[in-house]
């Protein structure tokens, strides 16, 4: 209990530090949000008046705490560039990025597990070798580049999808998911090769252990041994890896959103940074930080439950 509490306190401290860093960055970065809003032709008087209205003339800490108190109360502020509440703006974009991350995860699981089993089962066979070589290649290609290749091959040559033809989930759910298939594939590809490699190694290791021979001696056939015993044990490290990969895939979609012109969280984040629209940037970064910290926190807590030997440092 004390441990959990301690972790919880450190989580809050981390969030405060993160938000302070973002605020500080905007203080240091050149670019005045008021000028950004009013344009280069605006008179200095109008800019001064707007800065006053936006509260930009207040000292740094005053501005920070004003933002912080509102944020804690659930008021994320109003976007400078869109004049709409930040909460609604970001909430509309979350499903896009999240769907893509989840689809990438599903694709990874569906493709990598059967392939991993095949490579292990036919270790050093032709299929194994082919898969191994392609694994090396796929792992070496960064998602943004495979994204460009996919767009080129499936979009322009085979015409399976329209590049840039994104349809929002509010309009047509089916076409939305369909458009996200290829971007998700681009995100998933490197993860697929990693998972296949991992599962293969893990299966081969497990198959060499004594309990496998025992299982055979009890009269099980190969498939029985494989699915009832070996696979179960081999999956444990793979599941841990996939858990980590899921968070990574949501983050990895940031680059892919640019390549496939998907108006998700990252597009808003990047444009808000260049527009000096810090209420939006703060909200998104805090959201990402919360996800990362909460996941870490839960993992810590679960480890503690599973293994009470993990002490309180």
């Amino acid at each position: 209990m004390k441990y959990t509490l301690k972790k919880f306190v450190s989580m809050i401290v981390t969030l405060v530090v993160v938000s302070l860093c973002v605020f500080l960055a905007f203080n240091v970065l050149p670019g005045d949000p008021a000028v950004r809003m009013l344009g280069l032709e605006a008179s200095p008087e109008l800019i001064a008046q707007t800065r006053e209205q936006m509260g930009l003339n207040d000292p740094f800490l005053v501005r920070y705490f004003r933002w912080f108190i509102a944020f804690v109360q659930g008021d994320f502020g109003t976007s400078y560039s869109y004049s709409v509440p930040v909460a609604g703006l970001v909430a509309n974009k979350i499903p896009i990025t999240l769907t893509m991350g989840l689809m990438a995860f599903v694709i990874t699981v569906l493709i990598s597990i059967p392939l991993g089993i095949v490579t292990a089962k036919y270790e050093n066979g032709i299929l194994d070798r082919i898969i191994n070589v392609s694994n090396q290649i796929v792992m070496a290609i960064p998602p943004f580049f495979s994204g460009i290749l996919i767009t080129f091959v499936f979009g322009l040559i085979l015409r399976i999808f329209t590049p840039g033809g994104f349809v929002s989930y509010t309009e047509d759910m089916g076409r939305f998911v369909r458009y996200l298939f290829f971007p998700s594939l681009a995100v998933a590809l490197p993860k697929i090769s990693m998972t296949v490699k991992m599962l293969r190694g893990s299966l081969i290791d497990e198959a060499a252990k004594d309990y496998t021979r025992t299982a055979y001696s009890r009269g099980n056939n190969t498939n029985g041994v494989l699915y009832r015993h070996v696979l179960k044990n081999a999956m444990i490290p793979v599941i841990t890896f996939l858990g980590m990969a899921l968070a990574d895939m949501v983050a990895g979609s940031i680059v892919i959103e640019q390549v496939f012109s998907i108006p998700g969280i990252s597009r808003i984040l990047l444009t808000s940074i260049s527009n000096r629209d810090y209420p939006v940037v703060e909200a998104i970064i805090m959201g990402i930080a919360v996800i990362v910290i909460v996941v870490n926190f839960l993992v810590d807590v679960i480890y503690r439950i599973v293994d009470p030997r993990i002490g309180i440092e």
């Binding site: 767009t151 080129f152 979009g155 322009l156 015409r159 329209t162 590049p163 840039g164 033809g165 994104f166 390549v259 012109s261």
Partner: peptide
């Protein structure tokens, strides 16, 4: 992405 999007027909 503009050339691809124009060629692909999304703009």
């Amino acid at each position: 992405a503009i050339v691809m999007d124009l060629e692909g027909g999304s703009i």
